[in-house]
Amino acid sequence: MLLNLHAPTPLEYFASLVQSDDELPLLETAISLAQDEYPELDLQEPLLAVESLQSRLRRRCDRSASVLERIRLLNRFFYGELGFSVNRNDYYDPENSFLHAVLQSRRGIPISVGLLWLELARGIGLDAHGVSFPGHFMLKVLLAQGQVVLDPLTGKSFSSEELTEQLQSQIPRLSLVSDDVVPLAMFLQSARPREIIARMLRNLKEIYRTQHDAQRLLAVQQRLVVLLPQDWAELRDRGWAHLELEHTQQAMADFETYLDHARDASDTQQVAQKLRDLRTLS
């Protein structure tokens, strides 16, 4: 019997991590996103670094401390002592999405900084969750009665009025919401790990698309297709990335599958025409 002893590629390893919603390891999966850029990255190093920070924090946390006391302790440690904050100098640097780099620089964007905050929060017994709020990833901690919603870049809590104001500023680009109704609770649901990873990848997708970096964009699209196998728009976008790199056969295969499954999409005629053009040329 032949044994397959080759080391998994970054994409294969990612696929093994995201097979199951119930067992998806959020921190490890998020760290693994950097392996396309840093294929030799040892994931254990950042995992152990987070574990060390958790241990330091737990030693300072009184077991009898209330939820609010634990949040204040965490914020003093995370934002004050460790100095985590936003990367104001280069907000759209891809490094802001690579957790091993954020751990070193202490600078990132809401979702990367927030994910590290979440890990420390759970390490001291807080019922903490990510929130895929439009335009700005947020954090929330469940209380005995209600919840507190926080800005991952500062630890500051938001009032309902502030959250409503932020949501209203996003309404013009939200198709599910009418101008006169703001269902705030709908946008404060806990984000599942798969949703958080998808948001991180889509941040990178937009960066590489804007930079016209087709090779890196394709690597992100490969992950999105693995992560969201029923999201046919991501498959279509992988086809466009393949086409940009002149991978004609791969692009055609993606466009064909997209047209088979997304027949009611608004761009099917455009994709079908491109597919016909490619068939004519091939």
Rank of each mutant, 00 (worst) to 15 (best):
R56F: 09
L57N: 05
L57I: 07
R58K: 15
R58N: 12
R59L: 14
R59Q: 15
C61A: 14
C61F: 06
D62A: 15
R63G: 15
R63K: 15
S64W: 11
A65C: 06
S66T: 15
S66Y: 10
V67F: 09
L68C: 11
E69H: 07
E69T: 04
E69A: 13
I71E: 07
I71T: 09
R72K: 14
R72D: 15
R72S: 15
L73T: 08
L73E: 05
L73V: 06
L74I: 11
L74V: 12
L74M: 07
L74C: 08
N75Q: 10
N75W: 03
R76P: 08
R76T: 14
F77C: 10
F78H: 07
F78Y: 13
F78Q: 08
Y79E: 06
G80H: 08
G80K: 10
G80W: 08
E81P: 09
E81M: 09
E81Y: 11
E81C: 08
E81L: 09
L82C: 11
L82N: 09
F84Y: 11
F84V: 04
S85L: 07
S85H: 12
V86G: 14
N87R: 03
N87M: 01
R88N: 13
N89H: 14
D90I: 04
D90W: 10
Y92V: 07
Y92K: 04
P94W: 07
P94T: 04
E95A: 15
N96K: 00
S97R: 05
S97G: 11
S97Q: 07
F98E: 05
F98M: 06
L99N: 08
H100E: 06
A101N: 13
V102S: 00
V102R: 00
S105T: 13
S105F: 01
S105Y: 00
R106E: 01
R106M: 00
R106K: 10
R107A: 09
R107C: 07
G108D: 01
I109S: 04
I109W: 02
I111A: 02
S112L: 02
S112V: 00
V113N: 01
V113C: 00
G114L: 00
L115C: 03
L115Q: 00
L116D: 02
L116M: 04
E119T: 03
E119V: 02
E119L: 02
E119G: 06
